[in-house]
Write a protein that binds this DNA or RNA. Structure first.
Length: 271
DNA sequence: AGATGTCCCTGGAAGC
DNA sequence: TGCTTCCAGGGACATC
């Protein structure tokens, strides 16, 4: 499932190639999470000015307006000039003079939304509530501590909510909490400054490690050039229920938190 | 304002 | 073999 590393790997894998491309045509498959928000013809002739990322959203900036792309749970992008004919799960093809940008998304939790500008109400509704970027300088331990102080919910759920820090999904939340030695069920506000500092470092370390390995490929994630990721091979807890902890050999446990699985080591991760 | 539950969707695995 | 059921989960939204 695409989290920040996968989205960033995707961005880097075709940002340079699509820069300056001119849109020739648009093909839509089955409906995605939200309607596109403009007519296909409105995009024809637009030029791509850049590709940036905010949280798990990719922002394809055009000379007029912007396409917000989200990969949801099962989405992946491809960019190339020799793509195969669209299959049943290819729901968005943006043809340009530099190649075709294709969104493949079997579960269709993903989205492509056109907004005339980032100040647009629709863009703001999606982006305004997002927390700090974990790999930017603005993510620093004291601010993180202050943000967590006001939260009574479990730390795992606060991480996933994305309003404190963005981009940390289920895999990396579980892994960062393991690295920091913190139980996922611990209330956020009960974390000491020292433990928040450890968690801060763990979030950064896990995301950077995942980035360096090309992300996690659980089922079929790949970059826009088709390269899989390898972080899943290093997971300490995610998906390892019943297996021995790689650190202490205690059995990894899994629980449900807010309809989502959490994995942890009962020995290494304390209250 | 924060916390919680619901919903969207399909492929794969497990159970019968 | 072929059915049914369950599970995976990002995140907007409604509700308390």
């Amino acid at each position: 499932m695409p989290e920040l590393p996968e989205v960033e790997i995707t961005r880097r894998s075709f940002a340079d190639q699509i820069m300056g491309a001119q849109v020739g045509a648009l093909r839509l498959g089955l409906p995605l999470r939200w309607p596109l928000g403009c007519a296909a013809a409105d995009l024809v002739g637009r030029r791509v000015l850049g590709l940036t990322r905010r949280g798990k959203y990719l922002l394809l900036q055009l000379d007029r307006g912007c396409l917000l792309l989200h990969l949801g749970m099962s989405g992946s992008l491809r960019f190339g000039s020799e793509l195969a004919p669209p299959g049943r799960h290819d729901h968005f093809d943006l043809q340009t003079d530099r190649g075709c940008l294709r969104l493949h998304d079997p579960r269709r939790f993903g989205a492509v939304v056109y907004v005339p500008s980032l100040d647009d109400a629709r863009a703001q509704r999606l982006l305004a509530g997002l927390g700090v970027e974990p790999l930017d300088a603005g993510f620093e331990p004291e601010r993180f501590y202050q943000a967590l102080r006001g939260r009574r919910a479990a730390i795992k759920q606060v991480l996933l909510a994305g309003d404190v820090v963005v981009g940390v999904g289920n895999i990396y939340a579980c892994e960062a909490l393991f690295l920091a030695g913190i139980r996922p069920t611990l209330r956020a506000q009960r974390l000491s400054r020292a433990r928040v500092a450890r968690l801060h470092a763990a979030v950064v370390a896990v995301l950077q490690r995942a980035l360096s390995l090309g992300g996690s490929t659980l089922r079929d994630f790949a970059s826009a050039q088709g390269e899989p990721g390898y972080f899943q091979l290093e997971a300490m807890v995610y998906g390892r229920t019943g297996l021995p902890c790689r650190t202490c050999t205690r059995t990894i446990k899994s629980i449900r938190q807010g309809q989502r699985s959490s994995f942890f080591c009962p020995q290494c991760q304390t209250f």
